[in-house]
Amino acid sequence: MSTRRYRRKEYWNRPTMSLWERVYLFEIVRGLSITGGVFLGNMWRWMTGRKGALTTYYPEETRADYAAANRGKHILTRRPDGRPQCIACNMCATVCPAKVIEIEAAFDPDDTAHPKYPARFEIDYSRCIFCGLCVEACPEDAIRMLKEVPNLPGHDRQRMWITRDELLNWNPHSDVAKPYPAATGPEKPRGPT
């Protein structure tokens, strides 16, 4: 049995406090003046009509520093005559890892160049992971993701589906990279329905 006295281990960086710090009250006052100063500064900003915080009000405001290549809300591009560029090939729906794209193809005998078109094209935003694979898979430059994300939040998941018409219309783009031969056959005015 050892008779050595127990000695508390000494560390090289033992915290030391001066008497001023150990009196405690002055350090408390210092801390309170820091937080109180921040409070008064921010309060002054609020009262003079500025925003006293860095926060953006999410659905109403868009952050100014969104990246130009931000993958936001989808659009479907249009042909020059206004019909969807999409040929309902289901490539995007196939590659989609979250399986959120649902396409119902339809047949249009009058459009001899591309008779297949999407009657329904819907994306479930409650499950979309915004990976951008649908955009990369598209052979026709028909689906794109824009930088903005307007009206994304919703109160129930049934209303989180975006329909073909909204995809075509919320921010219409018709500058497709792959131009189309004009439809042959009799002229028939058709736009996005």
Partner: peptide
Amino acid sequence: KQAAIMSDRI
């Protein structure tokens, strides 16, 4: 509210 303003929040 005061806690939020003290910590740069809304």
